[in-house]
């Protein structure tokens, strides 16, 4: 009896369409987040994450519609992140059918937002997304914003610890150094985070081959997020799971 390690595909959604490209056959509309969510659900995803990168108010309204259509058809947990600034934003997303929300920049600007969301909806709905990279800070990792383009000067580990104390239930740890390299998850960063925190860690950034997933679990991750390797069919979720299973990790069949 073991808790399975989770595999989580992430979809970037802009004005209701999946961006960053997806390469699937047999899909009527590969740009439709709902179609893709169903596909990943069928392929064994343990959860799904939508990252709303819409800049406009209209885009955000579209996201709510997509969340509700997804929740009506895909019966696995759905996390939605991007542009969440208020408790009411969270309420709308949960009401639409999201199970969890992830927050990033808004929490850096106003950390009390974490307390407010956790007090109202519980820690379990709240994922802190952290875009971290190596820098001359106390732990050697700093928090960035704008996809790694801007430094906050915040020490990443101090920030995560503060956020956990305030009430986040999970950490989505995005390595800006590993992101896009396909050379593996940021093992050092995962280990440093695991040593400090007792909430689940979702590792993100750098997945390129199936063994990378096992390495991140070995370093202490509880769940693994990936985008391009799944979108472009480098391998299937089931291939990752069989590899992990053979390596001795518990996965959901």
């Amino acid at each position: 009896m073991t808790l399975a390690k989770r595999i989580i595909p992430c979809l970037d959604v802009d004005n209701g369409r999946v961006v960053k490209g997806v390469n699937f056959t047999n899909l009527v509309d590969a740009g439709d987040p709902v179609e893709l969510a169903k596909r990943y659900g069928e392929e064994g995803a343990d959860e799904l994450t939508f990252l709303d990168i819409s800049a406009s108010v209209d885009g955000r309204a579209t996201t709510l519609d997509i969340v509700s259509r997804t929740a009506e058809q895909v019966f696995i947990p759905l996390t939605v992140g991007g542009g969440i600034r208020t408790v009411e934003d969270v309420n709308q997303l949960l009401r639409a059918g999201a199970d969890k929300v992830s927050i990033n920049t808004a929490a850096i600007k106003r950390p009390d937002l974490i307390n407010e969301i956790a007090d109202r909806f519980g820690n379990q709905v709240l994922v802190l997304s952290v875009d971290a990279r190596r820098a001359q800070t106390k732990s050697g990792f700093e928090v960035t914003t704008h996809g790694g383009r801007e430094s906050t000067r915040l020490d990443a580990l101090e920030w995560m610890q503060d956020a956990v104390t305030r009430g986040v239930g999970e950490i989505l740890l995005n390595s800006m150094d590993a992101d896009g390299t396909k050379s593996g998850y940021d093992i050092q960063m995962i280990k440093a985070t695991r040593a400090l925190l007792s909430v689940p860690i979702i590792a993100s950034g750098g997945a390129g081959k199936v063994s990378d997933f096992a390495d991140a679990l070995e370093a202490g991750a509880d769940a693994l997020l990936a985008a391009s390797v799944f979108h472009f069919g480098t391998f299937k979720i089931s291939e990752v799971k069989s590899y992990l299973s053979r390596a001795g990790y518990s996965v959901r069949d």
């Binding site: 009896m1 073991t2 808790l3 399975a4 390690k5 989770r6 343990d46 820690n123 379990q124 239930g169 999970e170 007792s198 909430v199 689940p200 509880d222 769940a223 959901r252």
Partner: peptide, 13 residues
């Protein structure tokens, strides 16, 4: 348990 919340898929007896 060392890591909480208990989040994810688990077996049931």
């Amino acid at each position: 348990a060392p890591v909480l919340p208990h989040i994810g898929w688990n077996d049931v007896n």
